[in-house]
Amino acid sequence: METYTAMRHLADSWGLLAMVLFFIGAVTFAFRPGSRALSDDAARIPFRDE
């Protein structure tokens, strides 16, 4: 059970930090300057052939 306990402590501390950093990076990527045009273009993909 020592391996399980060590992995659980690692996930509780560094795992949470990694998830928070990933979330901040994803939000920053989505709201970066110049991404509106790319997002609008991606949103219109299903309607291009109509």
Rank of each mutant, 00 (worst) to 15 (best):
P46Y: 11
A30D: 06
P33C: 01
A43G: 02
I24T: 12
G25I: 12
D12G: 00
T3W: 01
I24E: 09
S13T: 08
F29N: 06
G25S: 12
D49A: 12
F23W: 12
F23C: 14
R44Y: 07
P33M: 11
E50I: 01
F23G: 07
A6N: 07
L21P: 08
A26P: 07
A37V: 13
G34W: 04
M19L: 14
R8G: 00
S35E: 12
G15F: 01
P33G: 12
S35A: 11
R44H: 12
L38T: 02
L16C: 00
W14P: 03
F31E: 01
S39I: 09
S13A: 00
Y4Q: 06
L10S: 06
D40Q: 14
F31H: 13
S39G: 15
R48P: 02
F29C: 00
R36V: 07
T5N: 08
G25T: 04
F22D: 10
A6W: 02
F29W: 11
A37M: 08
R8P: 03
F29P: 04
S13I: 01
W14T: 11
L21E: 03
I24L: 15
A37G: 08
R44T: 02
R36E: 14
G25M: 09
V20K: 09
S35Q: 13
L17I: 13
L21V: 13
I24K: 13
D12C: 10
T3R: 14
R32G: 10
P46C: 02
A37R: 15
F29M: 05
P33H: 01
S13R: 04
L10G: 02
F22V: 13
I45P: 08
G34V: 09
A6Q: 14
L17H: 06
A42K: 11
L17N: 07
D49H: 15
A18P: 03
R8M: 10
A26F: 10
G25V: 00
S13M: 02
D49F: 11
W14N: 01
G15M: 02
S13V: 07
M1P: 02
F29K: 11
R44Q: 10
Y4H: 06
R48F: 01
R32N: 06
D40N: 12
L38Q: 14
H9M: 13
F29T: 01
R36N: 05
L21R: 03
R36W: 03
I24G: 01
F23S: 14
A42P: 04
E50T: 09
R48T: 10
W14I: 06
L10Y: 10
D41P: 03
A18M: 08
F31D: 04
D40K: 12
R36C: 00
R36S: 09
F23H: 09
A42G: 00
F22M: 15
L10K: 11
G34D: 09
R32S: 13
P33N: 05
D49I: 09
E50L: 03
D40E: 14
A37W: 01
T3C: 00
A11Y: 03
H9K: 15
R44G: 00
R44I: 07
A30C: 06
A37Q: 14
P46Q: 03
T5H: 07
H9D: 15
R44C: 04
M7C: 10
I45N: 04
I45S: 00
D40R: 11
I45W: 01
